[in-house]
């Protein structure tokens, strides 16, 4: 393999990784804000892919119109999830197992609801970014969608960073995730903040779904794939560390793409499984997480 091929694979891998990093970031945000693992995250990705399909293919809408509409719908779906399920769990002071069971049920429900609406046949959408490779460097051909995916994802992540770091509402959200009681005492409407985090997290997952139509078939199984990969990204980066989740996602995308080309593309998912099991069993705190002792 020469350098040019390697660079091509690397860029491709990073752009696939960005698609994993987005829902991984969503999982991380929710884990911090509400202390629950959103088992249905992959389903959020899948549903937004199908929404894009319905708008682009069914209604012949332009990509630039369909994208914001999808993100909006998914934002409100996230808020609705929080207002119904998470709020109820919180009010009941429910055990973590109960929370997990309800999200498992939600994920199965959404997957089957999608089957009800869109059927089981795989769908495709026309690649909105064009299919003609660009010669970036001599001999190095990059697909335009790789660059677009990477660019849009980074833009979204940078936007979130600005939101959380430098805006009042972002600080209020971070305060809520760190200590809800104190935040409430300081006058933050913590219920609204958690809803907002859910909406945002669902929106970033939706972006991954909307963009992935350019690369993958849209199927029901993609929810499982995205769910698993977003989870693995979090495990690699350290659960509850948003930056770690992003790095983990990018890393997973690169390792998977390189592994698939060196070994065989049949073993792409085996690589994910092996990474997941390795980290779960031998390094469950991930690459970047401090250990916190349990108080007895």
């Amino acid at each position: 393999m020469n350098l040019a091929t390697f660079i091509q694979l690397l860029v491709g891998g990073i752009s696939i990784g960005a698609l994993y990093a987005l829902p991984a970031l969503g999982i991380s945000l929710i884990w911090n804000a509400a202390g629950v693992f959103n088992f249905a995250n992959g389903e959020f990705v899948m549903i937004s892919s199908y929404l894009m399909y319905s708008m682009l293919v069914g209604r012949k809408m332009p990509f630039l119109a369909a994208l914001p509409i999808t993100l909006c719908i998914m934002f409100f779906l996230g808020v609705a999830t929080e207002k119904t399920i998470v709020y109820t769990l919180r009010r009941q002071n429910a055990s973590p197992v109960k929370a997990l069971v309800s999200f498992i049920a939600l994920s199965i429900f959404l997957r089957n609801a999608a089957r009800f609406v869109w059927g089981t046949a795989p769908r495709t959408i026309p690649n909105p970014f064009g299919a003609k490779p660009i010669e970036m460097l001599p001999e190095v051909f990059i697909m335009p969608h790789a660059l677009w995916i990477l660019g849009i994802s980074l833009l979204m992540m940078a936007g979130l960073l600005v939101l959380f770091r430098w805006t009042k509402i972002g600080v209020a959200m971070r305060a809520t995730t760190q200590n809800r009681t104190v935040a409430a005492l300081m006058g933050v409407n913590t219920n609204r903040m958690v809803s907002l985090v859910f909406g945002l997290s669902s929106m970033v997952a939706a972006l991954a779904g909307a963009l992935s139509g350019a690369v993958f078939f849209i199927t029901l199984e993609m929810s499982v794939m995205f769910g698993l990969k977003a989870f693995t990204s979090n495990i690699i980066g350290g659960f509850g560390n948003p930056l770690g989740a992003i790095v983990g996602g990018l890393l997973l995308g690169v390792v998977e793409t390189l592994g698939a080309s060196f070994v065989s593309s049949h073993y792409k998912d085996v690589i994910t499984f092996s990474l997941l099991l390795f980290f779960l069993l031998f390094r469950p705190k991930g690459l970047f997480k401090l250990e916190i002792a349990e108080k007895l």
């Binding site: 399920i85 069971v101 309800s102 199965i108």
Partner: peptide
């Protein structure tokens, strides 16, 4: 038969969430 998993998941959700 087509939808029973969907119905099961809804039932589980309700059982967990309803007091």
């Amino acid at each position: 038969q087509e939808y029973y998993i969907m119905i099961f998941s809804l039932i589980v959700l309700l059982i967990v969430l309803l007091p």
